[in-house]
């Protein structure tokens, strides 16, 4: 879903401004680090359902000097029992050449739904984590990262 001639930030901010101008302002506070709406649509299509906010904690540095190695820790509030556990966590970087970063597959043997990895970020953007639970439900969280020097080639 490339948007070739328009910077994503401009697009999102522009969209928000347009919504304000048209009076479509909801009173629900939108978290600053929520995934852009069009990206959420892609996730919804992939999962076959809309992920809910909550349960997922995504930790990244707010400012990273080097986009080649940005530490990321994702945790999901789950007892990790046979009936109630996280089965997968997907990490997505919408501003990278390929948005899929990695997928963790977990099961009750994992015991704790938390993992750490180091990732590449091409530019400042919102990183998204989507957790899929054993019962099929899905939860989403985002974290904004500002990058001084981008990773991914160049």
């Amino acid at each position: 879903m490339p948007l070739p001639d328009i910077d994503r930030r401009t697009f999102v901010v522009g969209g928000t401004a347009a919504a304000l101008a048209l009076g479509h302002v909801t009173l629900v506070p939108r978290p600053a680090a929520a995934a852009p709406n069009e990206f959420k649509e892609v996730i919804k299509t992939l999962l076959g359902r809309e992920p809910k906010e909550g349960k997922v904690t995504l930790k990244l540095p707010p400012i990273a000097e080097n986009g080649n190695t940005v530490p990321l820790t994702v945790g999901v509030d789950s007892p990790m029992t046979a009936n109630d556990h996280v089965s997968a966590i997907h990490i997505l970087a919408e501003g990278n050449p390929a948005p899929q970063v990695c997928t963790f597959r977990l099961n009750p043997n994992t015991g704790k739904a938390e993992a750490t990895i180091r990732i590449r970020l091409a530019k400042s953007q919102i990183v998204t984590a989507v957790a899929q639970m054993a019962d099929g439900s899905a939860y989403i969280a985002g974290a904004e990262v500002k990058i001084t020097v981008g990773g991914c080639g160049g």
Partner: peptide, 20 residues
């Protein structure tokens, strides 16, 4: 634990996870 990695993972992949 399984991790499926894409090119957006940094060089020298460092992964921390847990087991019971």
């Amino acid at each position: 634990f399984v991790a499926e990695l894409q090119p957006s993972v940094s060089a020298d992949p460092y992964i921390v996870f847990h087991l019971r």
